[in-house]
Design a protein around this nucleic acid. Structure first.
Lengths: 355, 355
DNA sequence: ATGAAAGCGCTAACAT
DNA sequence: ATGTTAGCGCTTTCAT
């Protein structure tokens, strides 16, 4: 392993000069040609900084921990991890992930071992938009929440713009020609529900389509949806569009439609919020999905965290990497740590017929 | 942060004694009461070893890297990560994950940065059972492959027992009363296919059911399956069971069945290999799945890797943690690094009627 | 059985 | 603009 000492020897300078240059702290302290000489030798010898040594000295590791309650275990986690990792890489940080269970004792151990490891800060990511109380073991750490807001209001966080999601999805159905649009929501008390519903209502209003509360059906699980779909179709034979709180509900609609000889994408249109990306991609190319901005949340959270660590301005939203279509940088402000994401329509293949 | 020096001061001994004791190297070198005194003080003061300092000295970090080509991005990855993390924790290691793209240049950067970070070894995990050529940047590292075998044959690896999977699934259908069982496979050249198919054939043979090649249908994707199901049902109206290479195919069968007024779990039985666990859980409680042993592969891989790092015996299979049903420790041998896993049936609710 | 001391590679305060 | 120097906290060799 090549050290600064070796480079210093070959360059005929002192280690401190090498250190200064290799850490880009040589502005006006080291002459330009000496600096470039050092740099040349370093790359030539294949120098890699010894993280142990620098960490020992500075007590920081350029590492951030991604904590998630089962995020790494759920499908949509992947996007968030990708985003976080891309941002971390871009900023020169290493991303270390750990699964924790919210509220569990063993989580503290995991967090402690990461702190012992010298992580400079944490992303606390959750499975779906919800309020979160941070564990004690994170109390005096730099933390950014993702897909969640801090119950105490002290940590910055990023969540999807649920109203936009509801509005966009509904508008999408309207533009596809739907006029009787069902809202297939959840019976659970989810943060996302009111926002998506109000987006749905507003979209209808903006297009002059009457809002019919009868067309709202809140279900428990996917199989509950399946159980209740036959009656719903019976009651509302004129329904031509479905906005699903999440895409597992789409399957229930599809089966029932199949049973009635209706073809989604032709006779009815379905848009689902993309909780289980696999489903849309693997099972049902006709399903139009509104994708939750997990990549963007992960990316932004890391940028924000690094800005807190280094005391700099937050990094902007991703420009490269994952194909980000209509993502706009959210407004950043000191006083509103809770930022909203824009969303994007992933696929717009919807052609309803029964109008 | 409490250091060994502080402990030494409070205990009235030297740092070397403290180091010896706290690393459990005090056998016959430090008197028992001094040792216990030191330990007491250490826990009292809440001592945590400074990983930078010890790493700087020993050049090892008690960290292992989990590399995956998009594993963290796919649903079934979660189980493997959980297994790996449980094993790592049990053995006192920290698991650091990184996404890489097999064969991509940027992957080398990622790997390099992990090596720079002092990881002691790597798990190289893939999305499905396949031969893998390790990247150059991993050449002189300790590596264990998971859900994959090393093309060069030098690195140990663990893969599912595909024959057992096919046999168990088929047998399951037979016991549920099926007599005309379709094999819905893949047109792609997958390592798993021959094994699963031979398991299917053997199970039929063992139960005296004739093997009919006409009942084998290999498809491309889930939507290809959907496109071809109507004709398949027309050709074979007597089929009463389906073994699906993976569970995305199940959806195609379900839709077509719905169209024909057949109910899965009642009129026909379906077993799928669980590639997208979500599907079975979220969409279809009637689908019987054969679960790929991702947790076990992750757990075993880490145990094996640590044994290579520390030069000890490999750790056995998990005893606690994730509910592992019928998992048997695989035969371990120096000369057969490629180990097979046992599988388990996740859910056995299958009641076919049309016999 | 225990302690003293050197040094891992780096950073940063202080000299020059 | 560049060099000297003193550690960061730990492990480990060598004395005692």
């Amino acid at each position: 392993m090549v050290t600064m000492k070796q480079i210093a020897a070959r360059a005929g300078v002192s280690v401190s000069s090498v250190s200064l240059v290799l850490n880009n702290r040589d502005a006006g302290r080291i002459s330009a040609d000496v600096a470039s000489h050092i740099r040349a030798i370093a790359t030539d010898m294949g120098y890699l900084t010894n993280r142990f040594a620098s960490g020992l000295r500075t007590n920081s590791s350029h590492t951030i921990g991604l904590l998630s309650d089962e995020v790494a275990t759920t499908p949509f986690a992947g996007r968030m991890i990708e985003g976080a990792q891309d941002a971390a890489r871009a900023l020169g940080y290493l991303l270390v992930m750990a699964n924790i269970k919210n509220g569990a004792k063993e989580s503290d151990r995991e967090i402690l071992s990461l702190r012992q490891f010298g992580v400079d800060g944490f992303i606390y990511a959750r499975m779906f938009n919800q309020k979160t109380t941070l564990p004690d073991s994170l109390q005096d750490c730099k933390v950014v929440l993702a897909d969640s807001t801090d119950a105490s209001g002290s940590a910055p966080s990023i969540v999807p713009d649920e109203h936009s999601i509801g509005y966009t999805a509904t508008n999408h159905l309207i533009e596809a020609g739907c006029r009787r649009i069902a809202y297939v929501g959840t019976i659970h008390n989810m943060v996302a529900q009111p926002g998506r519903l109000s987006g749905y209502v507003d979209a209808l209003a903006d297009r002059g389509i009457p809002y019919d509360p009868e067309l709202m059906i809140n279900v428990d699980t996917g199989s509950d949806a399946a159980a209740r779909m036959p009656a719903f179709f019976d009651r509302h034979p004129d329904v031509d569009g479905f906005f699903c709180f999440n895409d597992t509900r789409a399957w229930a609609i599809y089966s029932e439609a199949a049973r009635r000889g209706l073809t989604p994408g032709k006779d009815i249109a379905v848009v689902g919020v993309d909780n289980h990306q696999v489903i849309a991609e693997a099972l049902d190319p006709a399903l139009s999905t509104v994708e939750l901005p997990h990549y963007e949340m992960g990316y932004w959270a890391v940028g924000k965290l690094v800005s807190m660590i280094e005391g700099k301005e937050p990094t902007p939203f991703p420009k490269t990497g994952y194909p980000v279509d209509k993502v706009q940088p959210p407004p950043l402000s000191e006083h509103s740590p809770q930022i909203e994401c824009q969303l994007r329509i992933k696929q717009s293949w919807v052609r309803p017929k029964r109008q």
